[in-house]
Each structure stands twice: as C-alpha cells, then as structure tokens.
C-alpha cells in the first residue's frame, strides 16, 4: 500500500499532499496531552504491523490496521499514521517523498471513515464493529489507491488484466483476515482494557 516515488503524477502528488496537510491539521486540532501516549502506542503498532509481509502472487501486501486505529483513536488516527509512515520512510525507505501525502491519505481516510461509521451503531456488537471496520478500512484504502492510479494514468486500468484488478485481487484476502483479527482484537480489548474502547461500548446493552 506504500506508493513509491514516481508512481503518481505530479498534480496527483501535489493534491494529495495538500489533502494530507488538511487531514493532519484536522486531527491535531484540540489534541490533549493525555491522548498522546495512546496515539504513540498505536503508531508503534502500525509501524510494526506494516513490516509483516504477506506474499501474494508476484507481489506482497502487509496489514494496514486502519479499522483498529480508526476505532480506537477516532479523529486522532491520522496523527498516528503520519508519524509511523514518517519513521518507516526514514528507517526503511518505504513509500516516497512525493507520495508521502498520498500514503498518509490512503491510510488515514479509511480510519476516519470507519470511526464515524461505527461509533454510534447501536445494533452491532463490538466484534462485528471491529470486523466490519477492519475489512471496510482495507477496501476503502484500496478503492482510494485505485482512484489515485486512475487519476494518474490510463495505463493502470486499460489492460485486459489491469493493475487495478490485480490490486483488488491481492487485497481482498487481506480485507477478510484483517476484519476477523480486528473483530477479535476489539472484543478482547473490551474485556481486558475496557477504558480503551469505552467510546464504542457506551451504546451497548
């Protein structure tokens, strides 16, 4: 999911960078000091999870944790994602300089969307909230990636077996796996550390 330098066209790179600045300011606004430890720890989790590679066909994918981070951090999710991406770029050269904004958006927007989609769902249990947000975050992220690729060049979608189709095929299994894992993680977290998910639990029972 880390888009490398040169993949996106200059207008797309500039637009996504502006968008990333906007989303960063939105996430930063009103951040309280006591929220920083939680943000930092989840950034650490995202940093490590992104290094676990799952080889699929000729390429490899990695967990995104968008759903999990979105549900736990809510509006602050982009802060964790941005800092983790920055360290990944510095220490592992993952992603690129011109695509840093695009990568931030690709992982932050799904986290924010699932948070707002599931925070007030009365009918869903925590497991289902986690599972649906885990899967949806991956699918939204891939959808956004396809949108960026389409905006960049017709090369990515013109062929019979196009890049867009390959990306969907590679990430669909991850969406399922990540959904189940996020569901279990949120459920387990509610049992051992209910304080971390109390904003999701308030509507339950």
């Amino acid at each position: 999911m880390h888009v490398a330098d040169g993949v996106l066209s200059l207008p797309v790179a500039i637009t996504t960078t502006i968008g990333a600045v906007g989303i960063f300011v939105y996430a930063l606004k009103g951040t309280k000091e006591e929220e920083i430890p939680k943000i930092s720890l989840l950034a650490g989790g995202f940093f490590v999870a992104s290094l676990i590679n799952i080889p699929i066909g000729p390429t490899s994918i990695h967990p995104l944790l968008g759903g999990f981070i979105g549900l736990i951090l809510g509006r602050r999710a982009p802060l964790a994602i941005l800092v983790a991406l920055l360290l990944q770029a510095l220490l592992f050269q993952h992603g690129g300089i011109t695509t840093f904004g695009a990568n931030t958006l690709l992982m932050s927007i799904p986290a924010l969307l699932v948070h707002y989609m599931f925070i007030n769902r009365k009918s869903l249990t925590l497991f289902w909230k986690g599972m649906m947000s885990g899967s949806l975050a991956v699918l939204i992220g891939v959808g956004l990636l396809c949108l960026l690729l389409i905006s960049t060049s017709s090369y990515y979608h013109d062929q019979a077996f196009s890049v867009i189709q390959l990306v969907w095929m590679a990430y669909l299994p991850l969406a399922l796996i990540e959904g189940v894992l996020t569901g279990f993680a949120i459920k387990h977290l509610s049992l051992i550390r209910p304080q971390l998910v109390k904003h999701l639990m308030k509507e339950e029972k």
Partner: peptide, 9 residues
C-alpha cells in the same frame, strides 16, 4: 522505531 514511540508514550 519502537523505542521512539515507547519513549514518547
């Protein structure tokens, strides 16, 4: 990387 995040937290 982990140390940075743990230190901040």
């Amino acid at each position: 990387g982990i140390s940075c995040f743990t230190f901040i937290a």
